[in-house]
Design a protein around this nucleic acid. Structure first.
Lengths: 354, 354
DNA sequence: TTGAAAGCGTTACCAA
DNA sequence: TTGGTAACGCTTTCAA
């Protein structure tokens, strides 16, 4: 501790106060923080050191951003409330990728729920300078407000006119998976689908055609089309009664849907699941019902989250590069002019369940 | 679409512009947003409706916060870089709990890395009005700056003088776990520990006593003491050569440490792991080495993350209420005056590995 | 290399 | 119930 420490630091430090204390102008202090080239290195060092000593942490971000009109924050708009994204392996990996790049770029990230019923959101919406939108926001008005802001936007897992987008090949991956399974079971026996947010409503159970979300906006819908096309290629079809909807990719929803699906008569020979989480839940239900996998039942997932890899038996699934997707999204939003919209490849990973 | 739409909305809307457009004062507009009781309901409705039409999303947060000195944002200071927390089941559950409460309180959350080598951080540090600090930040200076800010702070998994803290009973849980294992193996055969961040350095391998972090700040150290005390109660001891350190609770670190530990001669009869992730990795190594669990080797974890529950065989572990911890931390930081520091209970969950 | 001063968009006091 | 107006803390031009 410096013995000459003043007892003053109770008062909140401002740039102006520091300037007075050091006997220089506010502009000089500001330059010391923002434009090193505008003053001598010596002076700058001195100033920075004194700021530290005085307990001044640098320019107040609110004032700075009011003045400059920018904050240096990247908003990550999530499809749902935040809590959901911490539960979902895929979202978690995506955010990990995003935060790696933003960390390295010394940029902060503000997570925002994509739901309108969170009123506090609206005023926060103007904070970020740029946006990553991860999945179609639950409320369309969120998008409308965002578009008015004229800020760089990268959409992930869906597309928006006039904005950069980043997608994965859902159709291709799902088709590979379905083809693989159908080949295994020799095109016989019913095939069921455990889908994820195929319809607007929250019900967990069989769907009805009329309610299906549009394939343009719903990646699940794209996967479903792929499953169906694959079935058709094998001279089969997947009837609506064998398509289950879940609302979240979680254990409970997966267990409920799988239990229903595996109670259908005749019992499905294969379960095409739209996430690994759902597939793992289905696997567990099969175990409980003493259905042998893969002999009596084939199961495939989607995403290839780490848990799927380590499960016993290992989940056969469609890999999508979630972390890489996050990294790329961050890079794209930081330098929009250097990128174009992209579709990342997916890939079938055959393990033991199919 | 309104046919009378002006073509003007190119210009960014401000409160002042709206006031002019509506022919009222800025104060009135401000009140419409912030103090409904200060004007007639009619006028307020009218104003809000017009704002919507004009594309004004409410007061600019930078200006508002400059003026009021508050932002309504809760900072969650993490121990490490962000990316780490999206990989860790425990952190993920904690953040889920936090975000549930903050969502409901209409409050935003700003995640911040607790490392000083991220310069961009410093200016962000003044944004939040209140802080949750999750684990001791890697750089102590982060804490020092935080304390100067005089904002409500809740520390989690460690304590700070003059601040609310929230901990779990690490010692009690670890002791239960160790006792259980020692009873099983009849107090014979060596017992090894796979620890987590027991020492400052990043090495994965055997520790040396002198380097151990202080028990006051390190929950791992508390767990280690419990393991040792339990051993002593059984007339045993855990020598330093059988204590491994890992840097992160992840698969790779766990595999490396477990592989070393299980190659020791004589081979340990039990592995006390400081996280489930490490325990699961150890389990996988045992499988690879054809060591039968629990017959030849007992394994216990810590945390009770969902994956531990579903693993086969199920991991015997110490449950800590991570989600609840997150919820409580958020409630505490929002209403510090209504709470006192707390230690949440932990609980041994016996499954199949010990 | 430094200083003076205008203004960024609000809010909150006080007056009307 | 409404309006006028002085801050809030900073950046940036322009001039010295």
């Amino acid at each position: 501790m410096n013995k000459n420490d003043k007892k003053t630091p109770k008062k909140r430090m401002t740039l102006k106060a520091v300037a007075e204390a050091l006997g220089v102008s506010t502009a000089t202090i500001s330059n010391a923080f923002n434009r090193p080239d505008q003053l001598s290195a010596n002076l700058r060092d001195h100033i920075l050191k004194e700021c530290e000593r005085l307990g001044y942490n640098g320019p107040n971000p609110a004032a700075r951003s009011l003045r400059t009109g920018a904050t240096g924050i990247v908003g990550v708009m999530l499809a749902e409330r935040l809590a959901y994204n911490f539960r979902d392996g895929c979202a978690t990996e995506f955010l990990q990728g995003v935060s790696e790049v933003l960390d390295d770029a010394r940029t902060n990230m503000l997570l925002m729920p994509g739901r309108d019923d969170f009123y506090h959101l609206q005023s926060m919406e103007s904070i970020p300078d740029r946006y990553i939108v991860y999945g179609p926001p639950r409320d369309i008005s969120v998008i409308e407000r965002l578009e008015r802001q004229q800020k760089p936007v990268v959409t992930v897992d869906f597309s928006l006119k006039n904005h950069l987008s980043l997608n994965v090949d859902n159709y291709g991956g799902a088709k590979q998976a379905a083809n693989h399974v159908l080949k295994q079971i020799g095109s016989q026996g019913p095939v069921a689908v455990i889908g994820l947010r195929l319809i607007q409503s929250d019900i967990i159970g069989r769907i009805r055609e009329t309610e299906l979300l549009d394939a343009g906006v719903s990646i699940s819908r794209q996967r479903l089309e792929a499953y169906r096309d694959a079935a058709a290629d094998h001279g089969m079809q997947i009837p609506e009664e064998l398509i289950w909807n879940t609302h979240e990719s979680n254990w409970a929803d997966g267990v409920k849907a799988a239990r229903e699906a595996l109670s259908a008569i005749p019992r499905p020979r294969a379960l095409l699941c739209m996430s690994d989480q759902l597939a793992m839940a289905a696997l567990s239900v099969a175990r409980d019902m003493s259905i042998s996998v893969p002999d009596q039942l084939r199961i495939v997932g989607f995403d290839d989250i780490p848990e799927a890899r380590r499960s016993h038996p290992g989940i056969t699934t469609v890999y999508q590069p979630s972390i890489e997707k996050g990294r790329l999204a961050a890079m794209m939003v930081l330098n929009p002019e250097r990128f174009e919209s992209r579709v990342l490849p997916t890939q079938l990973h055959v393990r033991e369940t199919a």
